[in-house]
Computed example of a mutant assay.
Amino acid sequence: MKPAAILEAALYVDDLAEAERFYGQVLGLDLLAKAEGRHVFFRCGDTVLLLFDPKATEVPPEAGARLPVPPHGAHGPGHLCFSAGAAEIELWKKHLEDHNVAIEADFEWPRGGRSIYFRDPSGNSLEFAEPRIWSFT
């Protein structure tokens, strides 16, 4: 057996309000849910992006909790890559620069496909890349 797809991905952020603004307004993702001081969730295609305050998710749930999610969290920058076609990447680069988001790297992969890298307000490394960078054929 093997998983068919990734349903959700998580990043950990320092400031939930700033993360909500960045992912909602700058990246245009649709807000799904939020819990003050704990998390902000967004829809991204068929996947859900979970943004957590690691201080809140490291705390074990109380006995008998309705949602007994085990503790989790990470410190330091994480990484997430969004899929985009070549023309979209050029548009994203301009859009990010128009929002004062610095592009850290912009290059073509040796096997083909372009990526641009940038950071969210918490320092997580984000990327837009052509899906063909992972072509398995």
Score class of each variant (00 low, 15 high):
Phe22Pro: 10
Asp14His: 10
Gly78Cys: 04
Pro54Lys: 05
Val13Phe: 08
Gly123Glu: 03
Pro131Gln: 08
Gly28Pro: 14
Asp30Asn: 08
Gly123Met: 10
Pro131Tyr: 07
Asp30Met: 07
Leu49Pro: 03
Leu67Thr: 14
His95Asp: 05
Asp15Thr: 00
Asn124Ala: 09
Gly73Thr: 03
Leu126Phe: 01
Leu51Thr: 00
Pro131Met: 06
Glu36Leu: 02
Thr57Ser: 15
Glu97Lys: 10
Leu11Val: 06
Lys55Tyr: 01
Arg114Gln: 15
Glu104Ile: 05
Gln25Ser: 11
Tyr23His: 05
Glu36Met: 02
Leu49Asp: 02
Val48Glu: 15
Leu31Gly: 00
Lys55Thr: 09
Ser135Val: 00
Phe82Asn: 01
Ala63Ile: 06
Ile103Cys: 14
Gly112Asp: 13
Phe118Thr: 12
His39Pro: 01
Trp92Thr: 00
Ser83Thr: 11
Gly85Lys: 09
Ala87Leu: 12
His79Met: 15
Asn100His: 15
Gly24Phe: 01
Leu31Thr: 05
Phe118Val: 10
His99Lys: 07
Pro131His: 07
Ser125Glu: 14
Lys94Ser: 05
Ala5Cys: 12
Tyr12Ile: 09
Leu7Asp: 15
Ala129Arg: 04
Ala10Arg: 00
Glu18Cys: 02
Ile103Ala: 05
Ala86His: 13
Phe136Trp: 12
Phe136Asp: 11
Pro71Gln: 13
Gly113His: 11
Gly113Tyr: 05
Glu108Asn: 04
Glu130Gly: 00
Glu58Asp: 13
Ser135Asn: 14
Gly123Leu: 08
Pro121Phe: 07
Ala33Ile: 00
Pro131Lys: 09
Gln25Lys: 14
His95Gln: 15
Glu18Arg: 13
Ala35Thr: 08
Ser125Thr: 12
Asp98Met: 07
Glu8Ala: 13
Asp14Ala: 11
Pro77Leu: 01
Glu130Lys: 02
Pro71Leu: 06
Phe107Gly: 04
Gly24Val: 00
Ala35Arg: 12
Gly76Phe: 06
Arg119Asp: 02
Leu50Asp: 11
Phe82Gly: 03
Leu51Trp: 01
Glu108Phe: 01
Gly24His: 08
Ala56Phe: 15
Pro110Thr: 07
Glu88His: 05
Ser135Leu: 09
